[in-house]
Design a protein around this nucleic acid. Sequence first.
DNA 1: TGTACATCAGTGAACGCGCGTTCACTGATGTAC
DNA 2: TGTACATCAGTGAACGCGCGTTCACTGATGTAC
Lengths: 233, 233
Amino acid sequence: MPTPRQRAREQTLADITRLGRDQLAAVGAAQLSVRSLARDLGVVSSAVYRYVASRDELLTLLVVDAYDELAGAVEAAVERRRAGDHQGRLVAAGHAVRDWAVAEPARYALLYGSPVPGYQAPAERTTGPGTRVILAVVAPLVQAWRDGALAPAEGPSVPRTLARDLDAIRAVVGAEMPDDVLVRALLVWTSVFGLVSFEVFGQYGADTFSRPAQLFDAQLSTLCETVGLVSRR
Amino acid sequence: MPTPRQRAREQTLADITRLGRDQLAAVGAAQLSVRSLARDLGVVSSAVYRYVASRDELLTLLVVDAYDELAGAVEAAVERRRAGDHQGRLVAAGHAVRDWAVAEPARYALLYGSPVPGYQAPAERTTGPGTRVILAVVAPLVQAWRDGALAPAEGPSVPRTLARDLDAIRAVVGAEMPDDVLVRALLVWTSVFGLVSFEVFGQYGADTFSRPAQLFDAQLSTLCETVGLVSRR
DNA sequence: TGTACATCAGTGAACGCGCGTTCACTGATGTAC
DNA sequence: TGTACATCAGTGAACGCGCGTTCACTGATGTAC
């Protein structure tokens, strides 16, 4: 049974996360400041140090928070589709990433944008949540391979050095799939985030596309063809 | 004939650009500061305002400088290959982008990373140089289409709203190519920068790939297949 | 060629601002006897 | 149930720092006569 003090502490920590998100949205990660967060919290700046040891730890908190939310959104979107519909699930995963990124551009930038100057995310705390997102995105492809629904590879085999790197990755993914499937999974991962980043970071120009989701969709289906995922009619 | 004063002014402006690049590399665009640039220049901070009207204009200067250099590098790499070798030229363009980005991560981030908080690039000065890069990257694909060397489209036609947006883009590209070719050009563009961004912004994890260029290469050739660019043997 | 004036690069002080972090403190909440 | 002590959230002042930008100025360079 938590004491009132414990409950208050959890509440304040939740408030800090929430206000941190707002800060992020308002000024970006580079300008995120402990003092201004304290002002929003209605507290003197030094009080925040009861909850986070430093500005860097505050950033880490927000990184983990964002990864978790994004991963959750992707996982939920995938599971809303029928288990056998691999392409549908992959498209759903892509759109989940895009929807979240469009709704939360600042948090997306924190995770997948240019690095925050002077801040290095502590691997032991962020790698886990970060990997969860990746796995959620490529899961439909991996499942398709497991079900034997993936068209066989066409291209040449990968160079030896690359093959060795892939072994390490295989251990993380936890599936014994062949090199070419793994490369395709990597392509899916990078392409999805590449497409989303372009849109969110404004590379297309302000008014070039009236319905960016349509472009994303068109490119996603091309991507599905590329990796050998074809919908069953 | 330039007066000594004019020559000195040009020299100082060049120094400012050079030191600005160094600043960018050292601390990133968000922390780039007029005062610290003045220190590097060996001059009092207010003196810099003889050359740039504000910090924002300094950033614009660096944006244009970077676009121009990158575009030049891509164009040169493309022209080093035989005119008929469309796939070779596209791969060369991709590698030119990657090489430049790896060598100049901070300047790459300024152009293609998350937006600099509080800074909005003036479209009338940056759009031109920015477009030059895009055109240089997709030029080999466009040329392949002109030469009739592009495999025909397979996917469904694009939605009407998207088609209308594409008309506007066609005007910029200055070529009367069909929608599906244009979509493929867009895919090339976004994918190349997506792949490069992932590597430069550290999404792969520090030591995941011992030779990232190999992964890039493998993904580039998959991309060439996707868009219907196949090398002639 | 010489002089008077205009231009302009660079100075140094100042304005007003925000930052991260430390530290001794007050006073409320929690706990052990 | 009551008391003494420990814990800990939050205060307010301070440290030392850097920032963008303005402004009146000095003195060298350039130009018109």
